[in-house]
């Protein structure tokens, strides 16, 4: 079979093999690039940087393990930045598996890297509650209507960080990570807009275009996909160089993503070449 015929009738499994290799090889050889934060990511960083010490920040884990490789770098970087700035961090989850991820992030980042931070005074896990966007609508006016205890079952009134917190309006920033529903869009529509609370966050690359319409009026910033996380990591390392020696999975995984993009482009070019040859030969119109 001539090369043209082979390329024209390329088996989809061949494409799959090349995509797999384009991810595996850069991972093995640790091909990595540097990043620079775009304005839409830098805005989030600047907002956190500008918040006074002790400000309250919600970090909502609105995703599941499926998208964790893409979203987790954002969660790690945000957690580090929030605690580095001595802000008060309130973890919660609109997705059930999000609570597990929040617990895992707490163990890996907060307990390991910020041993001086005290649970209940500097950070808190509110856990998962069912109710999707309507949970947000309820806690906009009365947080204790839905959260009577934290994730560990401790009475919410006995937690120092919860003193003076009545509802979402007592928070200075809401960060939602995910991109599905409920997620950042619901935080904007049900908390940010009606409560005039700054909202920002991160979403998978696939979902990010859905959220651009809310930027910058209703959403002060957005981290889109792996690149968004990598950009935030680079912004963090620029101001806090100590994080150059810590894990930065976003930047590390941009290498495989870059190569995979190139492989897809090569296949699209091959597809177009065979298409034009076929058209020239009159096989396709």
């Amino acid at each position: 079979m001539p090369l043209y015929e082979k390329l024209k009738n390329i088996d989809r499994r061949v494409i799959y093999i090349f995509i797999a290799l384009s991810v595996i090889i850069p991972l093995v050889f640790k091909i990595a690039f540097t990043e620079q934060a775009s304005p839409i990511v830098q805005n989030i960083f600047d907002k956190i940087e500008s918040l006074p010490e002790g400000s309250r920040v919600i970090l909502s884990y609105d995703y599941s393990p499926s998208t964790a490789p893409e979203i987790q770098p954002m969660a790690d970087a945000l957690t580090r930045h929030i605690l580095e700035k001595d802000l008060r961090l309130y973890n919660m989850a609109l997705w059930a598996p999000g609570h597990n991820i929040a617990t895992e992030t707490t163990d890996r980042i907060i307990i390991a890297e910020f041993p001086e931070k005290v649970y209940g005074e500097d950070y808190l896990n509110l856990g998962f509650k069912a109710g999707n966007e309507f949970l947000i609508a309820v806690i906009l006016t009365d947080l204790k209507k839905m959260y009577t205890t934290d994730a560990k079952g401790t009475d919410i009134d006995s937690i120092p960080m919860m003193q003076g917190v009545k509802n979402l309006r007592n928070f200075d920033l809401i960060l939602s990570l995910g991109g599905g529903k409920p997620g950042l869009k619901e935080w904007i529509l049900f908390a940010g807009d009606p409560g005039h609370i700054p909202v920002a966050g991160g979403a998978t690359a696939v979902s990010a275009p859905n959220l651009y319409p809310y930027y910058p009026e209703q959403m002060l910033g957005l981290m889109g996909g792996m690149k968004g996380g990598a950009e935030y990591e680079s912004a963090l390392m620029k101001i806090y160089p100590q994080y150059k020696n810590k894990s930065h999975p976003g930047i590390d995984l941009m290498g495989p993503q870059a190569i995979a993009h190139l492989v897809i482009m090569i296949f699209v070019i091959i597809g177009n070449i065979t298409y034009f040859i076929a058209r020239k030969r009159g096989e396709e119109r």
Binding site: K166, L168, R169
Partner: peptide, 13 residues
Amino acid sequence: VASPGHTSYMDAN
């Protein structure tokens, strides 16, 4: 608390 440059605060309690 409110950030520098901010001119309002909502007491939601």
